[in-house]
């Protein structure tokens, strides 16, 4: 069956009073795209940087490639690729010089041009890294992470701040990494991204793991249900009434009301009649299937994006 390439046990990292990583344990299997999903400050970067060997944990244990270690050693670093959340490169170096520099850090590395081709930066290979667009910089960071042909790739929020086209380019790269059998450890706070790319999603909040499952698994656990969303001003009595319908409270986001339901048509019918009777106008009525955002909302009572 699936083999755990990375095992993390009881990892802890506190910054003074902030429990950045608060006793988390999980496994990543060979060949999967494992995504850590959580809002800003959830502890994703701290977790990654500990595993990458950049930070020290307060407590905990890591097994990488079947070897237990306190810190990631040089031999392990030969087999991993890292793209940090902040993509900074040595100033005034060209794209190909930057990649060649990273190649020089490893005993074995791929040809620079091959990696440039893989992230589609051929046209920019003689450009200075600081002159690249956000998406191109991110692709350069990924190229640097791939130069040693790693078995295991860490990508920390590779699409944050990118436009949709640039984001899709990165998604393509991640999918082709998966096709090549690489293990990818991804972090993101975009639920679409986690849903689309991941084999498994680990939901993290305030340094704690909320749930780990496949994207479908997470959603299945919410039960067979849909969401009816609409906007309208609500009085406390209105809220109390809607809460009583399904034995599950509605969720409010300013004017927006989210009504979870297992009986979609029954609830829709009842909602229309209720609105009609009270002469309330329901704006922006929308029916949708649950997603990871709902999972997060369900578990934490908050949305992913603050």
């Amino acid at each position: 069956m699936s083999e755990a390439i990375l095992e993390v046990k009881n990892l802890k990292k506190y910054f003074q009073t902030v429990k950045a990583v608060d006793d988390i344990s999980f496994n990543v299997n060979r060949g999967e795209v494992y995504t850590m999903l959580g809002p800003n400050g959830a502890g994703k970067t701290t977790t990654l940087e500990i595993i990458e060997g950049i930070r020290k944990a307060d407590e905990g244990e890591i097994s990488f490639f079947g070897k237990r270690m306190k810190y990631v050693d040089r031999k392990t670093k030969e087999k991993i690729g890292v793209s940090l959340q902040t993509t900074a490169f040595i100033p005034h170096l060209k794209v190909k010089e930057t990649i060649a520099l990273f190649a020089s850090f490893f005993q074995k590395s791929l040809p620079v041009d091959e990696v440039i081709g893989f992230v589609s930066l051929e046209e920019k290979k003689n450009a200075y890294a600081e002159k690249l667009s956000g998406g191109q910089r991110q692709r350069l960071a990924i190229a640097c992470a791939l130069i040693n042909d790693p078995e295991f790739v860490f990508l920390d929020e590779p699409t944050t701040g990118l436009d949709p086209q640039a984001r899709r380019n990165i998604w393509d790269i991640i999918e082709s990494l998966k096709l090549r059998g690489k293990t990818v450890f991804l972090t993101t706070h975009y639920m679409e991204e986690a849903q689309k790319l991941s084999d498994r999603v680990c939901i993290l909040d305030h340094g704690k793991i909320v749930a780990i499952d496949t994207p479908e698994g997470h959603i299945m656990k919410l039960g067979e249900r849909n969401f009816i969303e609409f906007s309208c001003p609500m009085s406390p009595e209105d809220i109390a009434e809607l809460n009583s319908w399904n034995g599950e409270p509605i969720k409010m986001e300013e004017e927006k009301v989210i009504l979870p339901t297992k009986d979609l048509y029954g609830n829709l019918d009842r909602l229309m009649k209720w609105a009609n009777q009270k002469s309330i106008i329901l704006n922006d009525i929308n029916i949708r299937r649950p997603n990871l955002e709902d999972v997060f909302l369900d578990k934490t009572g908050r949305r992913l994006r603050d």
Partner: peptide, 17 residues
Amino acid sequence: TTYKSEHIYKRIFATPA
């Protein structure tokens, strides 16, 4: 200081450099 504050140093030492 540039290497430190812009995390270049950190990135480099995530490799066996």
